[in-house]
Amino acid sequence: MTTNPSFLSSTSFNPLSPSVDLSVSFAQKYLQQMKSGAPAVVGEDKFIERRRISMAKQMLTSLRSVSAKSWTKTDYLLSETLVEHGIDTDLIDPWYISGGIHQVYKLAIEAYSEQLSPYRIVNKVSPILGQVRQQVTEIDPRVIGFVAMQYHYTGMQLMELLPEGEQENFGNYVKILDDHLYMPLPRAYEAAANHPSDSVALQSVRLLMSKMTEIAERVVDRVNELYPRYRCYSGPLSSDRIRTSSIRDVEMFQVYMWVCLLEGNLHALETELFPLCVMIYPRLNVSWELVSQMTHLLRKEIGAYLSPQQAVYCEPFYEILRRMFSEEVFPNA
C-alpha cells in the first residue's frame, strides 16, 4: 500500500460517456444543496471574518492530535470486532490513513476559512478519497469501515472545537468527505461507463440520484417516528447529529444499490455493504430491527419514483436488500 495518496495516476476518459454524465449529475446535486447556504465573504463583518480565520488556524493546529484521538476511539470500538470477523489488523496502516486525513481535512479547513462553498472541494478531495477507498477495499472491503469511521470521528472532533453556531457550517465540509469515503461513487461511475445512455439501469440511477437526499430524509424521519425513544451509541435518533449520520447511511445504501443496478449483480451488496453493516452496526447499538425497517421503507420510497419498465429491473434488487436485513436472516433481532 502506498503511503502517499496524493500521487494519483492520470486517466483518459470520454467526456460524452455515461460515467461522466453520472458524475456531473452528482456534482449538480451537491451544487444545488450547497450554494444556497454558502455565505459570501464580500461585505462580511471583519470581526467575523477574523474570528473564522482564527478558528480555522486552531483546527489546523489540532489536526494531528485530533486524528490520533480518532484512531484511538475507532480502535476501541472496532478492535474486537476486527478479530471476530477474521480481519488482519496489519492490513490497516495508520500512517497511510493519517496522511490522507491530513490532506483532505486541510483542504476542507482552508475552504471553510475562505467561506468557499463546500461543493468547491469536491474535485480536489474526490480523487484522493477514491484512491484511498480503492486501495483499502482491494485488500479487504470490510477495512473501509474502520478507515471511514476514523475520518468521520476526526471531522466530529474538529467540529467540537468550534462555537455551536459554526459547527453546522463546517459540518457541510465533513459530510462531503464522509460521502466520498463511505460511498462507492467511483465504482458507480465506472459501471455507468459500460452502459449506453438509454439503458434502463442508467436512466433509473440518474433518476434516483436526483432524489437521493430527499428519499433518505423521508426514510430517516419515518424511522424516528416509529422508534421515538431509541438511543444508539452516540445518542438518541432524534438528535441533529444522529439524524445527519442516519441520512448519510441511507444515502450510502442507495449508492451501493446503484452499483448493483449498474453492474447487474449483487457483488457490492454481498461482499462490502452487508459485511460492513454486520461489523459496525452492533458496535454502534443499531439494532437489526431498525435496519430492517429502514430497508423496507427504502424499497417503498424507491418504488414510488420508478416507471413500470424501471421497476421491473430495479425492484428485485431492492427486494433482496430487504430480505438480507430481515428477520429471515436476523431472527432474534
Results as ranks from 00 to 15, higher is better:
F47A: 12
V286L: 15
V329I: 15
T2P: 14
L16Y: 04
Q150K: 12
V20K: 04
E114K: 10
P275S: 12
L31P: 01
V219L: 06
S287E: 09
R299H: 11
F13V: 02
R283C: 10
S12F: 12
V66G: 01
L8W: 07
E319A: 15
Y313P: 00
G37A: 02
V259L: 06
W288G: 13
S98Q: 11
L266R: 08
V83K: 13
Y318K: 03
S126L: 11
L31H: 10
V147D: 00
M159I: 02
I87L: 06
T2S: 13
G86P: 05
M156C: 05
I139R: 15
S67K: 02
V205G: 02
Q33F: 10
D221Y: 03
T295D: 14
L208T: 02
W258G: 02
L63N: 00
P236F: 03
C260G: 06
I101V: 09
N172M: 14
D198K: 10
Y96C: 04
Q32Y: 10
S36F: 11
S19D: 08
S246Q: 11
A304D: 11
S17Y: 00
P316I: 08
S199V: 11
P39G: 11
L284N: 10
V220W: 05
R51C: 08
C277A: 00
C260Y: 07
G100M: 09
L116K: 13
S67C: 04
Y281Q: 14
P196T: 14
V200G: 00
L162F: 05
G165P: 01
L261P: 00
G100K: 03
L261I: 07
M257A: 01
V143T: 15
D178H: 10
E251A: 08
T11D: 13
T11S: 13
L226D: 12
R206V: 04
P141C: 09
